Simulated scan of single mutants.
Amino acid sequence: MPLQLRPATEGDFLTLGRISKRAFPHASGLLFPTHLRQGTSSPTNISDDDDEVRWRAARMLSRWKLGSPAYVVVDVSGGSGDPSNKEEVVVGFAQWQEPGVKDPLKARGGAPHLLPATLDQDLIADLMERLPSEEKKAMEGYETADMYYLLMLAVDPSHQRRGVGKMLLRHGIDQATAEGKKVYLTATPEGKPLYLSHGMKQTGEFDLFGISNYVMVYDKECS
C-alpha cells in the first residue's frame, strides 16, 4: 500500500483545509450555511478561493507556526495505482497540541484571524466557548496541560478505509507514550471506533452541532 507519513510543511495547509471540509460535511454546512454563502461560492465549492477552505487552512497554519505540529499521510503513487508515478497526494492529516503549548485560537473562532462573512460567527463563538468547557468537565482529575491533545484528525473521504487514520493516530500515541505522556481528544461518532480500537476510553459525552461528541483519553497505565 503506497502510503507514507511525514511532517506537514507550510505548503500543505491549503490542502488540509480542503480535506477537513470534505471530512466534516455536517459541521461545514452549519458553520458556513447556504444563506450566508449566497452571492459567493457555492456550498460544495472546494476551490482555492473558497472561504471555508482558506479559513480552515489559516487556523491550522497559525497553530503549526505557534508550536502545534501536524503530520500528513501521502499516497506516493499519486492515487493512480501506477507505481512509476511518484507524485504525492495528501490523503489525511492530524494536528496535535503538545504538552505545555496553549491554543492560540480560543477567542471567537481564532482572532486575530479575519472571520469570513460566510461563517456563522455566533455559532463558532459558541463552539469555541463550549468545547473547552465540556472537555474540562470530562477530563476532571487529569492534568491536561501535561498531555497531548489531538486538535484534528481528518481523512479524505475518497481515501477512507485504507488505514490512513490508524497511521496518524498510532504515530501520535507512540510519540506521547515514548515521552510518558497521555493523550486526549474529542471524537465524532464516525471517529469513535478508531479511537476505541487503539485503547482509548471515553470520559465524557456532550451534544454539539446536533450530534454526540465523545471526550476520550489514552492512558497507557490504564489501557
Rank of each mutant, 00 (worst) to 15 (best):
V183C: 01
T203W: 15
R59A: 07
Y148N: 02
D82L: 06
G39K: 00
L105V: 02
I46V: 00
G92N: 02
F13M: 00
H35K: 02
L115A: 04
F93A: 00
E221Q: 13
V164P: 02
L5W: 09
S47D: 11
T177Q: 11
E98M: 14
P83S: 09
E88Q: 03
F209G: 01
G78L: 10
R37A: 04
S158N: 08
L105K: 00
M152I: 05
Q4H: 11
A94T: 15
L127D: 08
P116W: 11
I46D: 01
Y214D: 00
G17L: 14
E52W: 10
P132V: 13
V91A: 11
Q202D: 02
P116S: 14
I211C: 04
V74R: 03
A27V: 06
G78C: 08
W55I: 01
P83R: 13
P157E: 10
F93P: 07
W64V: 10
D219Q: 04
I46C: 00
R6Q: 11
I211W: 01
D122R: 12
H35I: 05
K192L: 11
V217E: 09
M1F: 09
R170D: 09
T203P: 10
D207Y: 00
M216T: 06
T118N: 01
Y218V: 04
M216C: 07
S80E: 03
E179Q: 14
H159D: 11
F93H: 03
S80V: 06
D48M: 14
Q97V: 13
R54M: 13
A58Q: 09
L30R: 14
V164E: 01
P193T: 07
C222V: 04
E10N: 06
R6L: 05
S223F: 03
P43M: 14
D126E: 05
S80Y: 04
D48L: 13
D122K: 07
L169S: 13
E52G: 12
V91D: 11
A176C: 05
K166P: 01
D49T: 15
A27Y: 10
M167L: 09
L14D: 02
D122F: 06
L131D: 02
P25I: 01
A154E: 08
R162Y: 14
D50C: 06
K220D: 13
D50H: 08
P193V: 06
E190V: 15
